[in-house]
Computed example of a mutant assay.
Amino acid sequence: MHIPLAEPPAAAGAEHLEQQQAAITRLGHELRALVEATVRTAASADTLHRVADGVRHVTGQLTGRRRARTEIPEVDGFPGGPRMYSPVVGAGSPLAPPVRITPTDDGLIGHCTLGIAHEGPPGYGHGGMSAMLLDELMGQACTAAGTPGLTVSLQMRYHQPIPLETPLRIVGRVTGTDKRKIFAAGTITTQADPSTDLVTADAVFITPDPDRTRALFPGLEEEA
């Protein structure tokens, strides 16, 4: 008789994590489609009431223990790893574009397309979305450079409005450090015209000392 060998715990844990992240990604994709359809629809009031009842029913299926405010999701790699529910890069977030980030020689580059759900002026992205995109890219650039920090200053300059449903290019890079301070810069352009800045930003981040880090992120202590 052949008796299958037990899977090593580490391998079983990695497989569970991958399955969970895949399921979260799929749900996030469908939720983003729902949000986009919701803000574009011209359906009747009766239809909207019927859909609202259906959404309430679906929400009721997400039972079980709920994550506490300071708890780091088991599917996340904080800091420096994937953030599944981030409103900027999270594949599981119904709010995120989401941004896909790759490293460059001197920082990070992100790609995304904003939908109608991110609208400010008709046809263009909300200015707060631009700030959130750049804050994320510059913050991740700090982490990628080995100097993770929290935003303490963010100066935005809006040159032209960000068009919706247009592939965008977001760049973040570290420009200098001073003890625990990290200075960064970022830009948003379209992918089709990367030489024309639509929004630019400068930011200052600061690396909290160990005591402050423990106070801000008690979940890191629990994981350790």
Rank of each mutant, 00 (worst) to 15 (best):
L27Q: 05
A33C: 13
Q140V: 07
E71L: 12
A185E: 06
F217M: 11
Q20H: 12
V99Y: 05
L220I: 10
I116K: 11
G60Q: 05
D202A: 10
D211I: 13
R65P: 04
A144P: 04
Y158Q: 05
H16L: 15
E74W: 09
T25L: 01
R67I: 14
T143R: 04
H49Y: 06
T175G: 11
G139R: 01
I72A: 09
Y85N: 15
V171W: 02
C142V: 03
V171N: 00
G127Q: 08
G149V: 03
G13A: 15
T25H: 05
E221W: 04
S86Q: 05
E18V: 11
T147E: 10
M1T: 11
T147Y: 10
A201N: 11
V171Q: 01
M1P: 13
A33H: 08
A131Y: 00
H2I: 03
V58C: 12
G28N: 06
T207M: 13
E18G: 10
R214H: 15
E71C: 14
T102F: 03
T190Y: 04
L168T: 03
V199H: 07
Q20A: 07
Q160E: 03
K179D: 15
A14G: 10
F78V: 14
R56T: 10
G92W: 02
L48E: 02
D53C: 00
T187K: 07
R32P: 04
L220N: 01
V51L: 13
M156D: 09
Q21K: 15
